[in-house]
Design a protein around this nucleic acid. Sequence first.
DNA 1: GTCTATAAATGGATAGAC
DNA 2: GTCTATCCATTTATAGAC
Lengths: 197, 197
Amino acid sequence: MTVSHRPQLRGEELRENVLNTALDLFSEKGYFNTSIHDIRCAAGVSTGAIYHHFQNKEALAKSLYMSLLLQMDQAIEDACRGKDGCMERCRAIIEKMFSLTLEQPRIMQFVLLAQHREYLPDEPPICSSKPFQAMKKVVADGITNGEVRELEPWIAATTMFGGALRMMSLQLDGVLDNPLTDYLDEVVECAWRGIKA
Amino acid sequence: MTVSHRPQLRGEELRENVLNTALDLFSEKGYFNTSIHDIRCAAGVSTGAIYHHFQNKEALAKSLYMSLLLQMDQAIEDACRGKDGCMERCRAIIEKMFSLTLEQPRIMQFVLLAQHREYLPDEPPICSSKPFQAMKKVVADGITNGEVRELEPWIAATTMFGGALRMMSLQLDGVLDNPLTDYLDEVVECAWRGIKA
DNA sequence: GTCTATAAATGGATAGAC
DNA sequence: GTCTATCCATTTATAGAC
């Protein structure tokens, strides 16, 4: 889909093409079921070109992971911009994540569900990554200003976002009857009831 | 830990030993980072013995996965036995899963967090496995008898258990200050507020 | 900067002795 | 039923031409 016919890209464009192709294959088959050879073929480039842009397979995956975490972090920041109050922000974050799950399922599959520590052993767990910390902070601020009950911060965050994250998994596993966004209002309402003051 | 010194087991005992060792290694390093050779060495048995009991590496993993799903399913059934009402049952399930996470982290790591479809391509997603269906049913029954609001069934289930499952991930990732069971009451209280009638 | 060809190693699986 | 030895395919990564 992203890669249709390949007009023999070079340089930075080739690099981006490799990353896009790797995301396709990693999210579809997993990191370990995807060989450099697979990426080579699907991207229409040579082995040498890949190894010119990335030190090795792990570095390629790390580069991809970092760039997607950054994208998610920015998406969250954008979603919160202009929103006032904890509930409004939480709702905006979940809405954004739901629509991303529908529009860019490969990204969410790769970022949320993959077990990165298996192939990026030096990376911290996903829960301490920037986007997840940002979500936690939104809820913690809600506690500070009295919108949210005085809960243990982790509990408050997992109550607010745990259900939504599982709904995203269900969507990616294809078990939901309707598109994820149809469930937005009810998901947010349920989660908010759990933590509101 | 499970495998300390090996009194040269045979037959069914050897088979169990291989499964236990595989669970250790799979949950610690992941399926793809664990070779048959690794299992061979750690279990103190020969390659031939492994291939006598299991058709191949995938069949070994599948056997392990099935047995652990069954264990979890029985644990949930046990937890619910004698409990009356949706809330009591949900609480018992979460309590059981929390204590299992502390006592048998390798099991929960392997069952909950691993991406089985990467190496068991024919298995259905975890959300349609028996233990997860059982959790969903407990909540659905709560809707039927009026304890729980009239919510979309998936939303009700993910609201009730989504936060708890994420807390389990946090425990397994080692980011919590206190043992998981310390958070039980508050986690259940928050989730229940989200769905109660 | 990109290519082809190939080196080097790993790992799943089998054969055949005991 | 278990063992050792080994085969063979796959895959990561490099060398060197263009």
